[in-house]
C-alpha cells in the first residue's frame, strides 16, 4: 500500500520533474531554433526522426515541446522561491507573535493576497518588461500570501500543543522552537504543497498569457501556450502541433493537483 502511494506520488511529480530536467538541459545545451525551421517538412507526421511530427512551418513539435518546458522552468522556480521567501517569514511572524508585530504581518499578508497573481504578473510585465521571469515573480507574490495564511493557521494550531510550551519552559531558544519544531517538523509538508502549487501555477499562467498573446513567451520562442495558439486552425493532419502541448498542460495540471493533495494530507506514521 505504501509503495502504491509512493508510485502515485512519483507519477504525479513526473510532469514537474520533466520541466525541471528540460530547464537544466537547455541551460547547458543551446538549441538553434532557426535551424529547426525547415519548410520542406511542414505538416509531416510522426516518424523515427520526428517523434511528434512537424508543425505548419516545418518545426519539430517534440523539440519545441521540450524547449518550451525548459523556458517554463525559470518562472516555475522563481515563483516557488519568491512565494516561499515571502510567505515563510510573513506566515511565521503572523503565527508566532500575537502582538502588534503579528497583526502587522497579517495586514500585509491580506493586502498582498488581495491582488490576483495574474494581475501581479501583468503589472510586473508592465514595469520591468515582458519576460517570463516576471510572470514567475507575480505568481510568487500572489501565492506567497496564500502560503503565509496557511502557515499562520498551522503555527497557531501547533503553538497550542503542549510540547511547544514545554520546550520554551525548558529554555529551548524560541528561534529553534520556531525553525526546527514548528516550521521544519510541523510545516514542511505544507511548504512542499505550496511550492508545488506555485511552480505549477506559474507554468499555467505563463501558458495562458502566451496563448492570448502580448505577454509571456512570444514567437519564435516556444511556449506550450503559444504552440496551441499557432498550431490550431492548421490542416487536420497537424493536430499534434496543438494537441501535444495541450496534453502536456492537462497532465501538469492534474499531476500538480494530485501532488498538492498528497502533500496536503496528514502524514501516515510509517510514510513520513
Amino acid at each position: 500500500m505504501r509503495r502504491a502511494h509512493r508510485s502515485l506520488r512519483a507519477l504525479a511529480a513526473a510532469p514537474l520533474c520533466a520541466i525541471a530536467a528540460c530547464g537544466l538541459v537547455f541551460t547547458v545545451v543551446e538549441v538553434d531554433l532557426v535551424a529547426d525551421l525547415m519548410p520542406g517538412r511542414a505538416g509531416q507526421g510522426p516518424s523515427a526522426g520526428l517523434v511528434l511530427g512537424a508543425d505548419h512551418l516545418g518545426r519539430s513539435v517534440g523539440l519545441r515541446l521540450a524547449v518550451a518546458a525548459g523556458i517554463s522552468a525559470g518562472p516555475a522556480l522563481l515563483a516557488a522561491v519568491v512565494g516561499l521567501g515571502l510567505g515563510l517569514p510573513l506566515g511565521a511572524a503572523a503565527g508566532w507573535w500575537a502582538d502588534a508585530r503579528g497583526r502587522a504581518a497579517v495586514a500585509l499578508t491580506d493586502a498582498l493576497g488581495a491582488v490576483p497573481a495574474v494581475v501581479y504578473a501583468l503589472l510586473f510585465a508592465l514595469i520591468f518588461g515582458d519576460q517570463p521571469r516576471w510572470i514567475g515573480c507575480g505568481v510568487g507574490i500572489g501565492g506567497g500570501a496564500a502560503l503565509a495564511r496557511a502557515l499562520r493557521a498551522r503555527i497557531e494550531e501547533l503553538r497550542a500543543v503542549n510540547f511547544v510550551e514545554a520546550s520554551l519552559l525548558h529554555g529551548v531558544p524560541a528561534a529553534r522552537v520556531l525553525l526546527h519544531h514548528l516550521l521544519w517538523t510541523g510545516c514542511r509538508r505544507l511548504l512542499a504543497q505550496h511550492a508545488v502549487e506555485l511552480a505549477v501555477g506559474a507554468v499555467l499562467v505563463e501558458a495562458a498569457l502566451s496563448y492570448i498573446g502580448g505577454f509571456g513567451v512570444q514567437e519564435p520562442l516556444p511556449s506550450w501556450g503559444n504552440m496551441i495558439a499557432s498550431g490550431f486552425g492548421q490542416p487536420r493532419g497537424q493536430a499534434l502541433a496543438w494537441a501535444a502541448p495541450a496534453l502536456c498542460l492537462l497532465t501538469l495540471g492534474a499531476g500538480g493537483a494530485a501532488l498538492s493533495t498528497a502533500f496536503g494530507q496528514p502524514p501516515r506514521v510509517a510514510d513520513d
Binding site: D110, A111, L112
Partner: peptide, 21 residues
C-alpha cells in the same frame, strides 16, 4: 480592516509602479 488593507494595497501598487523605467 478591509479599508485599511485596501489603502495598503494602493500604497504597495503605487510604489511598485513608481519603479517602472
Amino acid at each position: 480592516g478591509a479599508v485599511v488593507r485596501l489603502l495598503l494595497v494602493a500604497a504597495l501598487l503605487h510604489l511598485l509602479l513608481r519603479m517602472a523605467p
